[in-house]
Design a protein around this nucleic acid. Structure first.
Lengths: 242, 242
DNA sequence: GAGTGGTCTAGACCACCGC
DNA sequence: CGGTGGTCTAGACCACTCG
């Protein structure tokens, strides 16, 4: 219910109420009560109702259709919506079997770019893990992961054998919040030609990503550079408007 | 400045006006005129001003501080590119000025791939618009947009001069819901070498996108192929984990 | 034609900030 | 204290959808 004398804003109380309804009573595609319904039911202004609904639309929980009404969003759609995923998860989603060949596993420090991406001092210890990533036994990407030793503790090769994200989330019980990513095109360098088994002058996709934890400080948990074979890999994403 | 009789919503006109001010007159950290200032200056309601300002806050272009005012955001926080955006919006977000050179503007039909992407018959009429897209007068991308004539009606070159999305959303009053996008690496072909002013064997980023309307059928509104210069353009995105 | 969301008005009171 | 953004009201007209 709505308490007009509460210090909690009415629009926020209504937001919580609608959130609860969606969880407990409604299914994706169901229509919500109209803005005027809420306005009359709780004796509040329609503009206040709109503020609550607008916030939920922004979150992707519901969507509006002019002249028709407001509806509960499809959960499937929310999930398809280009989430941050590891190489392994990505390959499984594409119906392929992921695997890895470890090239090197070092404890380093001193790389200024990496330290700044991880928001650390250049003297801090950082793991550097280079791997060939394969799909159905064929090389697809050359990947280097940097992660702060202070966060992940003593790490060994088995820990990250399949998925580094699994280790972070299941073993360390940390929650990854989001990643900032860039994608560019380049020509393969000598390492890439060699490890990915491609030719000189072959174009490649280069991805850089910094991922952040769900904590208050949004601590960086990894900085990754991946080079993908352009004949084996495309980035796919679904992006919402607004 | 503000035309109350225009079919373009007042809040949107004000948004554009504030966007222009930020680009041309203001620096990060500068304070904006207050909501009441705008309200009086253009003789519009403060709630309407708030709608314009809220949209810009959502985009990360400005931020509000209770009791103090509204301020221009730092550039580094502007890159909130998780959402579907047009080339123009993308460039503006990067602090660049977008423009276009029209190469061709045709009414066609018969392309099976395009027809299938737009979920149409191969006999249906489709506009094909080829443009060079520039940022600060430098060529960045070669773009071909396909859009169903049945949806956009009689189109001319001026309509899409700056932003096709603007035309769809503000003139046609259609709502774009989401886009499915792929990004791959390739080598430039002859056309791309010529129009983008690059060299043989230069790598390029090739993006394909189908965008869908917010209607019940999720009607495709455009199919786009864009080729970006790899020395001038990286895709940037923020992805949530869950 | 009845109902919906989209836009807009002309006020109001509040908590907060800086002087 | 005066000015700011935050919240809220009680209406209004519009374009749109659907029966």
């Amino acid at each position: 219910m709505i308490n007009k004398n509460s210090p909690i804003p009415i629009y926020y109380q209504l937001e919580e109420e609608i959130r609860r309804m969606i969880l407990e009573e409604l299914a994706p595609g169901d229509i919500l009560p109209s803005e005027r319904d809420y306005s009359e039911k709780y004796d509040i202004s329609r503009m206040t109702v709109r503020q609550a609904i607008s916030n939920l639309v922004k979150e992707g929980l519901i969507y509006r259709q002019k002249g028709r009404g407001t509806f509960v969003a499809d959960k499937k759609f929310e999930q398809d919506l280009s989430g941050l995923s590891s190489f392994s998860e990505d390959m499984i989603n594409r119906g392929l079997t992921p695997s890895s060949k470890l090239l090197s596993f070092n404890e380093t420090s001193g790389n200024a770019l990496v330290a700044s991406k991880l928001q650390m001092e250049t003297t801090d210890k950082i793991y550097e893990i280079k791997r060939i990533r394969l799909a159905n036994e064929e090389p697809v990407a050359l990947e280097t992961v940097y992660t702060p030793k202070a966060l992940v503790g003593e790490l060994n090769e088995q820990d990250i054998d399949i998925s580094f994200y699994d280790y972070i989330e299941k073993k360390l019980n940390l929650t990854i919040d989001y990643g900032d990513q860039t994608i560019e095109a380049s020509l393969a360098n000598e390492d890439e030609i060699h490890y990915l088994n491609i030719n000189e002058n072959d174009p490649v996709l280069v991805m850089h990503r910094t991922s952040y934890l769900n904590d208050v400080k949004e601590t960086p948990i990894e900085y990754v550079t991946s080079t993908y074979r352009s004949d084996k890999y495309k980035f796919k994403m679904q992006m919402k408007r607004d």
